[in-house]
């Protein structure tokens, strides 16, 4: 798993994949999806898929890839190497969502929450497998949200596939567990090899668990907050823990849509007649249209 | 705040020949509104510049390794100092109606720097465009002349029309949002549209009554 592509450009989104085994193009296959790094306030989130012919499901069970959450980082690495060696029949693909992509997606003007981002990423990976010629028949998906709605959404999108969405699917379906291993290993490596884009000198990487309720992580966030620029792009700005520290310790910044937000929460809409009423300063000298159109004004005082 | 961002000619940074003669920001009377406005004299008052500001909500500047909260962008554009002197000539005509030396006309307690206008050589050499002149001994006396002024202003309007055309400024009469700037000239724009637009621009620099007379002219 070469992460160099992501390491070079860790502010964007990155797709990594193995070669597609020829067997997967000739035989009916199953595919598992899982994620890694949904909860932390630091580092990327990774979506992973694994796929193999239905006839090889048993081989995965024998590998004992289930219960990946109980494994250490080193054990996960070892398991991944094992999975990667099964090139004859097992393929994988990953979508790495950088903290910057997560933050900008969640904070854009049109609502786009983490669930929607997650679903779209999963859908894109399934589509990638189909586009790569994998003869998919069964898809197994792990979820933290309501399973039925998500399953319905995927079934509508891929009506030809048999889709199963279940919480803790990684402990029920080995193909999901295999995907989970791939995703977790990718996230571990991405975090370990993270290159700070920002010229911050020697950044102390002792940030604890990276989870928002970890006091050590909160302390790291506060220590690495620049009052004008906020955090390094290693941080998910859209997490409320991160936002709270910014609100209290960074300088206020106002954007073009700030007034819009304030106005929309105020008393009520204006009467149509108010647009036709003469304004108080109509008799005041109006600058020539040349200046108004270009937002140029006379200066009375600096 | 003690820092602003301004676009101006390089020559304004030239060191003056004598200390104290350098470029000077000062408030003078805007001839159209009668209110104070910021202007800039180059060193030795060779040239007068009007200060305009581009002002839009929600801007700040990065200047080197600093943040400047004030997101305005100032422009210093050269202007004919005669417009400002004209204001005082018209006022003197209304109040006294007689020939006077120009240094007795361009006096403004509220804007003491107005006397610096008299150092603008080019403007001083152009007074005859807007006045009748009398010379007694070595001293010159001036009296505002409306007809001559209108003739002079018409030339300004004609020059402005040329500049509007060569810069492809949209002068069409359609109603649109103030922030919508057409990139192409509308096809049905007439010479009158240009003239009215130019008259409007020149009117920014003359008293209202004179603007009305100029429009009729």
């Amino acid at each position: 798993m070469e992460l160099e592509k992501f390491e070079r450009n860790n502010w964007g989104s990155c797709r990594l994949s193995s070669l597609v085994p020829p067997l997967c193009r000739n035989q009916h296959c199953c595919l598992g999806i899982d994620e890694a790094g949904r909860g932390p306030v630091l580092g990327p989130m990774v979506y992973g898929i694994c796929f193999c012919p239905l006839s090889n499901k048993q081989d995965l069970e024998e590998l004992k890839v289930a219960d990946s959450k109980t494994l250490s980082e080193a054990e996960r690495e070892r398991l991944f190497e094992k999975l990667d060696s099964l090139k004859e029949y097992l393929g994988w693909a990953l979508q790495i969502l950088s903290p910057n992509v997560i933050s900008t997606s969640m904070q854009q003007r049109v609502k786009y929450n983490l669930n929607a981002l997650s679903h779209d990423t999963a859908i894109a990976l399934i589509q990638y497998a189909l586009d790569s010629g994998v003869q998919l028949r069964e898809v197994f998906v792990d979820t933290v949200g309501p399973a039925e709605k998500y399953q319905e959404k995927l079934k509508q999108r891929f009506p030809e596939l048999e889709i199963t969405v279940k919480p803790k699917a990684d402990s029920l379906f080995p193909i999901v567990s295999a995907a989970s291993i791939c995703a977790k290993v990718a996230r571990d490596r991405a975090v370990k090899s993270w290159k700070f884009l920002e010229d911050l000198g020697d950044v102390n990487l002792d940030y604890g668990s990276g989870y928002p309720n970890d006091p050590k992580t909160k302390e790291w966030l506060a220590r690495n907050l620049d009052p004008v620029f906020g955090y390094p792009q290693f941080v998910r700005f859209s997490w409320s823990t991160a936002q709270t520290i910014v609100d209290s310790r960074a300088v206020p910044v106002r954007w073009d849509d700030c007034d819009g937000d304030e106005k929309s929460s105020s008393k009520g809409s204006q009467s149509m007649l108010s647009f036709f009423a003469r304004k108080k300063d109509d008799t005041k000298h109006q600058p020539h249209r040349f200046f108004q159109e270009r937002k140029l004004e006379t200066v009375k005082d600096l | 705040p003690d820092q602003w961002v301004l676009i101006a000619r390089d020559s304004l940074l030239d060191l003056p020949k004598k200390p104290g003669d350098g470029a000077l920001f000062t408030r003078l009377r805007n001839p159209s509104t009668g209110e104070g406005a910021l202007f800039l004299f180059s060193s030795c008052a060779q040239q007068l510049f009007e200060i305009k500001v581009f002002k839009e909500d929600y801007h700040s500047w990065f200047v080197g390794q600093t943040v400047q909260h004030d997101g305005r962008l100032f422009f210093a554009t050269p202007m004919d100092a005669l417009f400002l002197i004209l204001y005082y000539l018209i006022k003197a005509e209304k109040e006294q109606g007689k020939f006077q030396p120009v240094d007795q006309v361009v006096v403004d307690e509220a804007f003491p720097s107005s006397c610096i206008l008299l150092q603008c050589t080019r403007a001083m050499q152009s007074l005859h465009h807007v006045t009748e002149e009398k010379e007694i001994g070595s001293k010159k006396f001036y009296k505002y002349n409306k007809e001559k002024t209108l003739k002079w202003l018409k030339k300004k309007v004609v020059q402005t029309v040329k500049a509007l055309k060569s810069n492809n400024i949209c002068v069409g009469g359609s109603v649109h949002s103030a922030t919508f700037i057409r990139s192409k000239q509308m096809l049905d724009v007439t010479e009158e549209d240009y003239t009215r637009y130019a008259h409007g621009l020149i009117s920014e620099y003359v008293p209202e009554e004179l603007s009305a007379d100029l429009l009729k002219y």
Partner: peptide, 22 residues
């Protein structure tokens, strides 16, 4: 020129966070 108003005058670590590009 920034598309936002930063309510502060003073030092900012611009070269640490921004790379000028033409």
């Amino acid at each position: 020129l920034l598309p936002c108003e930063i309510q502060y005058d003073g030092h900012a670590a611009v070269d640490k966070y921004f790379t000028p590009t033409i």
